[in-house]
Nucleic acid binder design. Structure first.
Length: 259
DNA sequence: ATGGTAGTAAAACTA
């Protein structure tokens, strides 16, 4: 039996959030952290800051937008960025660690439901289903984590009635995520906190006092195949991590397993 | 209230 702790975090600039991320890694000591929205070109990624602290990093970014990174205690095996056709390398990272196949993604947000980017988002999620079907079976140990930009259920967002036309809660995107999960993925946070409302991973900067007013969204997820779900021992959202000096609009989601 | 704030990067775009 081997302990395995994995986490996901939308940093909204890895350079601005560097002290917060380093402190969090030091405190929690996960095996693997997936980061989205690093917002930095590879030449400017703060690689040495992580390596000096004893972490291994793999990243793929671009100027201003997107960017994903994997931060690991053990050296990372080969990390593949993007889909099989090479598209979206700054939104998707894949690797294998401790026998677990890991996907880390920053799903396109979609802007508005009448925007063409929303259709791109739906097709993007189809692409994840295709990727899963191509490379794995539901009997494998597979973990998909990241900012998926979908609140799956009404309990995963404040004021669900008021957000029915929002790209992160619209019926089409929720059905699309359900379709991907119907391949054989379980929401590991919900497995440990069934039907509990008010657990959020994201709060809009533009709200006056979103954390206090409870104006949050659960759009960051760790989804796993059934054999991995059976080995999961807990899942939690680290709201305390938002006590940082310059917190991201998202916070850390953590899951633990006994492999 | 079609606003609000944060980040990048240098005006406007994204979330």
């Amino acid at each position: 039996m081997s302990h395995f702790q994995v986490a996901t975090f939308n940093a909204n600039s890895i350079r601005v959030r560097l002290p917060q991320v380093l402190a969090w890694l030091e405190r929690v000591q996960p095996d693997l952290l997936g980061v989205q929205e690093t917002k930095v070109q590879d030449k400017d990624f703060p690689r040495e800051a992580f390596e000096d602290a004893g972490w291994h990093v793999a990243f793929r970014g671009q100027k201003s937008y997107n960017g994903v990174a994997l931060i690991s205690r053990e050296p990372l095996d080969h990390v593949h960025f993007g889909f099989d056709d090479g598209s979206h390398p700054t939104r998707l990272a894949r690797t294998e660690i401790k026998g677990v196949h890991v996907l880390c993604s920053y799903v396109p947000q979609g802007k508005t439901i009448d925007h063409e980017d929303y259709q791109l988002k739906l097709r993007w999620l189809d692409g994840i289903r295709d990727l899963l079907e191509t490379h794995f079976t539901p009997q494998d140990l597979v973990l998909w984590m990241g900012d998926l930009n979908v609140a799956p259920e009404p309990i995963d967002i404040y004021d669900p009635k008021g957000h029915e036309d929002h790209v992160d809660f619209h019926v089409d995107v929720r059905q699309k995520l359900a379709y991907v999960c119907s391949w054989g993925l379980v929401d590991v946070f919900r497995r440990h906190h069934p039907k509990e409302p008010g657990h959020y991973t994201y709060w809009d900067y533009r709200a006056k006092n979103p954390l206090v007013e409870g104006k949050g969204w659960r759009v960051d997820h760790i989804l796993v195949t059934e054999p991995l779900a059976e080995r999961s021992t807990g899942a939690w959202i680290d709201v305390d991590a938002r006590m940082a000096e310059r917190p991201s609009d998202h916070t850390f989601l953590v899951a633990t397993f006994e492999l």
